[in-house]
Design a binder for these strands. Structure first.
Lengths: 201, 201
DNA sequence: GCATGCCTATGAACGCCGTTCAAGTGCGAT
DNA sequence: ATCGCACTTGAACGGCGTTCATAGGCATGC
């Protein structure tokens, strides 16, 4: 086995174990020594596969994004009219809520993680985010055919931000800590309101 | 000076210095040794005034909430009609954005801070939050006079969550990092959309 | 004024963290 | 078989929040 192959195998093991640890204990549950022990390597070996622990977290977060994309299923074929577009936005929002509930700590890690040097996320990470935002742009373009593409991309991100806020604060055990059924209902009310309000203007 | 008076004076000094440190460097910039040096006391003295550093952060966060409440000015006297209610919601949202921009790290600390043992925030903290939510409930009640008070309180919190999401992700230098003018415009579009969509249903 | 006893402030020490790097190990080439 | 090099290793480092034996001061009694 070449050195590169071993490094790749180590990377895979580390990411898998880190994923398990984050899913079980959250971001603070990822500790270098514990990770090394779980992966069957020395602490120092982690730093031959990743620049630091933040790199491991980023790799885990990419897997989480992929997992969410898979949970969304294939993109909607065609969206017939404004009502269908509104329905699709609600469906996406509720899929988001369902995923956050199913994988609370992994999902939390997506947003709680901060790169140390204040740098932006790497390109491969931003690209995966963009694929997910495209899911929102699709129905939004049906709802607002008057918007140019840049405006549509922007509005899709803001729609996501609003949805994320409702889910994140609603689920947060230290903030609202709302029952899932309540969040579900509130999310539908507000996404429908936004869709309706955007259409008429 | 009695022991209680000294303890209170120490608390005030610690909170003031901690506020300065958080405003300058964010939550990770608050370190026990540095705080003690700034306050002119020994590290151990911190733990005579607060149970731990999280207690200090909570006290700073309460001051931040008070600062925001002051920035909002006195509650609106009367809200004439649905259009005025919609305007008031937009005004509140933009005041929120303005505050987050003016005090980015202090504001960030409000949401990034996690209590260690997963316990909920203390009552005095929740009470201050409730006073702020009441600002939203007021125009919302005009917009939706059909809602009972519990539903109104719930919807107000969800409206806040959505607004918070737009502001938080929009300002986040590692996520969207949108220019302030863009966030401002998106916020107005979506708050107006929500207000319009809520009214018609 | 002085000795006594309590009580609080002190900061070195503890345990844990991420990260590094001198040293040892094993493997491929000669 | 021997050598040399590259890689793995885990003890060590610096820094963190928190603790606690101890030093010090202050009120009290004589």
């Amino acid at each position: 086995m070449s050195a590169d192959e071993r490094r790749r195998a180590l990377r895979d093991t580390l990411v898998a174990e880190a994923e398990r640890m984050i899913a079980a204990e959250g971001l603070p549950g990822l500790r270098a020594r514990e990770l090394a022990q779980a992966a069957g390597c020395a602490v120092g070996a982690i730093y031959t596969a990743f620049p630091d622990l933040d790199g491991v977290v980023l790799a885990v977060n990419l897997r989480t994004l992929n997992l969410f994309e898979a949970a969304l299923g294939p993109p909607a074929r065609r969206i017939a009219d404004e009502a269908a577009a509104s329905d699709e936005l609600v469906r996406l929002g509720q899929a988001y809520l369902a995923f956050a509930r199913a994988h609370p700590l992994r999902w939390d890690a997506l947003f709680r993680h901060r790169a140390p040097s204040g740098q932006r996320a790497p390109d491969w990470y931003v690209a995966e985010q963009a694929r997910l935002f495209a899911r929102i742009e699709q129905p939004l373009a049906v709802l607002r055919p008057d918007l140019a593409e840049p405006e549509c991309r922007l509005l899709a991100r803001s729609l996501f931000s609003a949805t994320h806020g409702i889910v994140a604060l609603g689920l947060d055990p230290q903030r609202l800590a709302l029952p899932p059924a309540v969040i579900h209902a509130q999310l539908e009310i507000l996404v429908r309101a936004m869709a309706a309000g955007l259409r008429k203007s």
